[in-house]
Simulated scan of single mutants.
Amino acid sequence: MSSNTDIGFISMPGARALAYMDVFSELNKFPSCILKLSNPHLNKSLTTLKGISQSYISMKNDEETLSKHASIPLYSINASDINDDIVLALIRETGIKTWIFSGGGIVKPHFFKAGIRFLHIHPGQLPEVRGSTCFYYSLLCDNTLAATAFFLTEEIDAGEPIFCQHFHINLPNEILNATYMDYVIDPWVRAQTLKRVWQSWPNISDIKKTSSKHKSKAPSPRACYVMHPLLRMMTINKVTNRFDPLSPKGLFINE
């Protein structure tokens, strides 16, 4: 078991944070501490995730469990917004300058001015595919699914990519729906991309040099944020229509 004294983990409790903590546990490699935000919708999220079969997220590695197992400090904050003054105050108190980010809003400039770095996993290939709903648009546009690790900057989705990983889905319509997309696929592709970076951390220079033969086209010259429910359904139908019952079923990393 090892821990990295140069990087902490900011957890917005929910599916994405649980998927990230599964990665820490699997690799037996941990951040120096956990800063746990407050998610007012956590109970709903956990109830939804528990009701999903083949979720790919164990739900065994919550913040308290991981803190005890890895013998690392856990700081719980009564704030759901990453930009709350108490968050920056605690970050300064720890002295840690680099943090793995798992949600909590759009980071405001005062963090960057304070010299804080946030390692973020974006659900699309950067810089081509930007925006919070971009993995839907990417699947709809050219059947690609990717996630990119990068350090946040003041401009949204504009940081230099560290590593991009591509994936593919082979699931039937009785499994794949909007809930599965949001609660399983989105956090899982982010976590698997984090895993590649975390395996190399802190020596990420080599992983920056790796490039995937798989590429995503830009669905739009603009960032992909709002998506009409009909377009979401079209995306899901497109993916399930490509289901191959003769091939392994599930979510896969493109090598």
Rank of each mutant, 00 (worst) to 15 (best):
W188R: 06
L194M: 08
W198D: 13
A223R: 13
Q192G: 03
D186S: 13
K217F: 03
L194D: 05
K213F: 03
P221I: 08
R190T: 07
I207Q: 03
D186E: 15
A218Y: 00
K208Y: 02
D182E: 15
K208E: 10
K209N: 06
V184F: 11
L194G: 08
I207P: 02
V197N: 09
D186K: 12
D186H: 11
Y225H: 14
W188N: 00
R196E: 15
K208A: 00
P187G: 07
W188I: 11
K208F: 01
T193V: 04
T193C: 11
K213H: 09
R222P: 04
K195I: 01
H214T: 12
R190V: 06
Q199Y: 03
I185F: 09
A218E: 08
S200Y: 07
S216V: 01
V226M: 12
R190W: 05
A191W: 04
V226H: 14
K209D: 00
K195R: 15
L194E: 04
Y225I: 12
K217G: 03
P202D: 14
C224T: 12
D182Y: 07
K209H: 00
S220P: 09
I204E: 00
Y183F: 13
D206C: 00
R222T: 10
D206N: 05
R190F: 04
P219M: 02
K195L: 06
P187F: 05
N203K: 08
V197Y: 03
A218H: 02
P187H: 09
P202W: 04
D206W: 02
H214C: 08
R196I: 02
S211M: 02
W188Q: 08
W198C: 11
P187C: 08
C224Y: 08
H214R: 00
P202C: 09
C224D: 14
S212Y: 03
M227I: 15
I185M: 07
Q199N: 11
Y183P: 04
I207Y: 00
W198E: 08
T193D: 08
W198N: 10
A218D: 07
W198V: 09
R222K: 15
I204Q: 01
W188E: 07
V226W: 13
N203S: 13
W201N: 10
V184N: 10
Y225D: 13
N203I: 01
Q192L: 05
K217E: 02
A223F: 09
T193Q: 06
